[in-house]
Design a protein around this nucleic acid. Structure first.
Lengths: 227, 227
DNA sequence: GGGAGAAGTTAGTACGTACTAACTTATTGT
DNA sequence: ACAATAAGTTAGTACGTACTAACTTCTCCC
């Protein structure tokens, strides 16, 4: 008797990717700027303007002209769904199929758009419903709950600070291998022993080892201060 | 020094689907007719004409106007790649993730376009490199070799004939459940005990059970005669 | 062998998603 | 405060993929 709810036409892969990127940028606090989205997606800014209008028409984002986009509740829920898929897939590939943690992002990036909720839930079950992916990122629950704590990065730490590594960006395999080689991994504890001024290199100890890293790298490693 | 080979731009999902369908239809012997492709893909015939021209431009099919399309060697190799992906994925979902054999086609249909060769090979390894999927269909090797025997169907069997069930179409979950309920499964042996004329129902014994099926259903179950 | 009906193609349209070029609005540094 | 620059938008274009409508070609039966 009741009419079917407004047709939920499946989004295209691209539209989904925009939502995910808007979510990620918004986590920084401000609405997602056109240029930032464009940069993340490797796309011209003009194309982003157009797509944001379309997503706004679909009620998935709210755009304030010349100021940026924010997700609506439906948009956010789709973004979290994707994040869940991405992170479950990454976990599954590492745990069950022998992938390296540095090598799963790309694969997950495509699979997350093709996998059904059913598949993701089965994978999650097979893994014992993990709460974090191999890079330490929190996995949204099937219901869409996620830990959204704002974390500091190593670049935020003052000399003498001690912190536990929570997570790191998963995008760049090279970068992940760089970290792994220095045992800068989720769960490890680091202490900043020196910093050069003018955004200079940061020296830190991990276990008994001492490493010096640039601020760009340091800013991509998220931590929780322990002192 | 040597120039990179002609850019192998990734095909779209749709283009890939066309190739797969052309392959499947061609297995019947004749070139793939526009209407048949259109029907398989649930698409207007006019759209197929257009796409075939594009695929021909890409050197993946050879079209004889008003007569149908055949795969070229490169086209065939892509189609086999897809078939391999599809069947490995189906096998993996059934064996490792607890899917029912009736319920994997749809999921594989989308994943096959997103999975890399790397992933497929890892799945295949995890399964012990199977040579058949859960519906009895042969799985092409990574190198693209496949068993292309032309099989008969139950509809081809004369009264009295005995045959081993090799495989069945995986498209329709209902149909697969129908078969399963009658233990008409790959490996089972059937004997035709009666046939009504004018494409009437076929009566057969499977184990100790006796079933009567229509010709449409019978034509979708492939067998190897044993007498 | 000719004509009816089936099969196939072309033409014109729409939409999603990208692009570049040109223009407009916002920000920032003096 | 205002000009230079950065950021964002619009306009026009292209391409892939679908559609319907109208036309052409093929096939097969009498």
């Amino acid at each position: 008797m009741s009419r079917p709810a407004a047709r939920e036409k499946a989004l295209t892969r691209q539209a989904e990717d925009y939502l995910k990127v808007v979510y990620e940028i918004e986590q920084g606090g401000a609405p997602a700027a056109t240029t930032d989205i464009a940069e993340q997606l490797n796309i011209a800014a003009a194309s982003v303007s157009g797509m944001l209008q379309r997503l706004a028409r679909l009620g998935l984002v709210k755009v304030e002209r010349y100021r940026g986009a924010r997700l609506t509740a439906p948009g956010r829920s789709i973004a979290l769904q994707l994040l869940r898929r991405h992170r479950i897939i990454e976990s599954y590939l590492v745990t069950k199929l022998g992938y390296g943690w540095d090598d799963v992002h790309e694969e997950a990036e495509r699979l997350e758009h093709a996998a059904t909720t059913e598949l993701i839930d089965r994978m999650a079950d097979a893994l014992g419903n993990p709460t974090e992916d191999p890079h330490g990122a929190p996995i949204p629950t099937a219901a869409g709950r996620i830990d959204e704590r704002r974390l500091s990065t190593i670049a935020d730490l003052a000399v003498g600070a001690k912190a536990r590594i929570v997570r790191m960006s998963d995008r760049d395999p090279e970068f992940l291998r760089y970290l792994a080689k220095r045992t800068i991994l989720p769960g490890a504890t680091v202490r900043v022993t020196a910093r050069e001024p003018f955004d200079g290199p940061i020296t830190l100890t991990v276990g008994r080892a001492k490493h010096t890293v640039g601020t760009a790298a340091a800013a991509r490693v998220f931590v929780e201060r322990t002192i």
